[in-house]
């Protein structure tokens, strides 16, 4: 399948640094160092416009940034998305072509749809539907599940819980916890109440810098103005 996903037994480390992004006069990202390892869920929080999506897209390789260094076990992988089995990325916008059926999308991504949706039996009746025929929340849930179950060493999720109903959010979070034994997850989502309990490591993007939060994370989030006092 791939050197990365076949290597599940071995700890793999994804590191990104040297990422500096400027929009006009404003430096969005600078002095970034981020580390994710397989078996971990890493949370990336930050206010709107702080550069979370840009950072994920840069790591994924969809956004070319001069001097950006993305490495897996010390080996440079730029653009990372070109390496089979290395990582996938769930963008904020719709991922799957609306004309594609759920079953065919799963086949192309190399995912067993039955297994991926085993904890969401209500999705079974929708396997034959096109993505464009699903409700917004179901489409979002399905996309997150497909990428979660896709055989990659790392998954980068940009707001996976957005639009998903609460009962499914809880199950999806449990599914992430279960599957982290197979891969490393980097998640950004404003639903911090759901994100924080499942994270092993939490980073905060604040004024262009990436801060690793240790200790009382909520208190620090309040100190940096991400949460209200």
């Amino acid at each position: 399948m791939s050197q990365y996903f076949d290597n599940q037994a071995k700890l793999q480390v994804l590191e990104a640094d040297g990422i500096r992004i400027v929009f006009g006069e404003r430096q969005v990202l600078g002095n970034i160092y981020l580390r994710v390892q397989t078996g971990q869920i890493v949370g990336l929080l930050g206010r709107n416009g702080s550069g979370k999506s840009v950072l994920l897209q840069t790591i994924f390789g969809a956004r070319a940034v001069a001097d950006a260094s993305v490495r897996v076990d010390g080996r440079r992988v730029v653009p990372a998305f070109r390496e089979p089995g290395l990582m996938n990325y769930l963008p904020q916008e719709p991922l799957l072509p609306p004309s594609l059926s759920l079953a065919r999308s799963a086949r192309m991504l190399g995912v067993d749809l039955e297994k991926a949706t085993a904890r969401f039996p209500e999705l079974r009746s929708q396997f034959g539907l096109r993505i464009g025929e699903l409700s917004g929340g179901s489409a979002r849930l399905v996309q997150a599940l497909l990428l979660l179950h896709q055989p990659t060493a790392f998954s980068l999720f940009d707001e996976p819980f957005s639009g998903v109903m609460p009962v499914h959010v809880e199950t999806l979070a449990e599914e992430m916890q279960r599957l982290k034994s197979r891969k490393g997850l980097l998640i950004t989502d404003h639903r911090y109440a759901e994100v924080l309990p499942i994270c092993d490591v939490v980073y905060l993007l604040h004024q262009g810098r990436l801060l690793r939060l240790d200790g009382d994370v909520r208190e620090q989030l309040r100190d940096y103005g991400y949460l209200a006092n």
Partner: peptide
Amino acid sequence: PGQYWFYFNLNVS
């Protein structure tokens, strides 16, 4: 502009 994400996830540039 967002049409490429699915293909990137299939390792196609």
